[in-house]
């Protein structure tokens, strides 16, 4: 019952947040000086041409009127038409979304694996030089944001030792048999591992850049929780029963220590997705973020709106899932 109440309350606040995002974006970008329509037409266009096109995109109406028309459209799944690319915004945005999702999920998996391994190793070898080394590496990784790691990776693995691709999502000359935009997933399903290899070689560095700060956070927090759990009575009891230290950490301490980390990973995952905007730009990766920056530079109002709203939906969605998972996993909240 309490769970249902939490769910309803969270759904309402999420809706309010999304509405707020929509209002802010819509009004902010309409303060932009300069007419996007004028930029679309060739230099010799007459005033009548400009007026006609302005009316076509609805930009001649007042801003609240525009918001109303746009808002009603959105509720029907119509996000308008991109001014520069002249295609429906929804199709454009959904076309790019899989690229960004594949990159983010790959980075998340890397961060969880590396951060988890660091925490477990650090706990197993606590109070040794290894733990000290892990702490220093964590501190470094946390201090520097993904953008700078991306540049360092480009230099080291793109130029100094060119083992990975530093630009794009896939080698342009390849023939792609894909019907969806989830290239990586589809290449595996179709057993085209030559393409999988090419895709991974492009995705690896941007994913690592995104994963480094998150891996450090996971490593730090999980190690702290594990070390606290190791002092509890039931862990000592398991140890007296003769289980090995590694097994005690893995089977007894980990399930209890993982909850705070899980919550944090959820919140941090939204930061990671936010980071894709600049990382995709840095690696010329054809995802949503790269498209967003182009849209801003070209003053493509409908496209900017669509992308920002989609990001906001993803962010609030992830947060919602995290909160509900936490509520479902935490017995105190479940029965409270």
């Amino acid at each position: 019952m309490a769970l249902l109440q939490t769910l309803l309350l969270r759904l309402v606040t999420t809706a309010v947040t999304l509405f707020g995002v929509a209002v802010i974006v819509f009004f902010v970008i309409r303060v932009v000086p300069g007419n996007p329509i004028a930029m679309m037409l060739p230099p010799g266009a007459t005033q009548a041409d400009i007026d006609q096109l302005t009316a076509l995109y609805g930009l001649d109406k007042s801003i609240p009127q525009q918001f109303l028309i746009w808002g009603l459209g959105v509720l029907h799944g119509d996000f308008g038409t991109s001014i520069t690319l002249r295609q429906p915004v929804l199709a454009l945005v959904l076309g790019r979304l899989p690229a960004t999702l594949e990159l983010s999920v790959m980075a998340l998996v890397m961060a969880v694996l590396v951060g988890g391994a660091a925490a477990l190793t650090g706990t197993r070898l606590r109070a040794t030089k290894v733990e000290g080394g892990i702490d220093i590496a964590n501190g470094m990784a946390l201090s520097v944001p993904d953008f700078l790691w991306g540049l360092v990776l480009i230099l080291v693995f793109g130029v100094l030792v060119p083992v990975f691709q530093i630009s794009g999502r896939v080698t342009p000359s390849l023939q792609l048999p894909f019907v969806t935009n989830f290239y990586l997933v589809e290449s595996i399903v179709r057993l085209r591992f030559d393409l999988t290899k090419d895709l991974l070689s492009h995705m690896f560095l941007p994913a690592v850049a995104l994963a480094i700060p998150l891996a450090a956070i996971i490593g730090q927090l999980l190690k702290q929780s594990l070390k606290e759990t190791m002092h509890l009575d039931y862990v000592t009891l398991a140890r007296t029963q003769g289980y090995s230290e590694a097994r005690v950490i893995w089977r007894e301490a980990l399930p209890n220590a993982i909850l705070p980390t899980l919550t944090l990973v959820g919140v941090q995952f939204t930061f990671l997705i936010g980071g894709t905007v600049i990382i995709e730009r840095l690696f010329s990766y054809e995802g949503l973020g790269n498209m967003a920056i182009d849209a801003v530079i070209n003053r493509d109002l409908p496209l900017i709106q669509g992308i920002v709203i989609l990001f906001a939906v993803i962010f609030t969605g992830v947060n919602l899932v995290v909160d509900l998972t936490y509520a479902a996993l935490n017995p105190r909240l479940r029965h409270g």
Partner: peptide
């Protein structure tokens, strides 16, 4: 809450 729903770089 609203601010947290925006990607900061964008």
């Amino acid at each position: 809450d609203i601010w947290m729903a925006f990607p900061p770089v964008l």
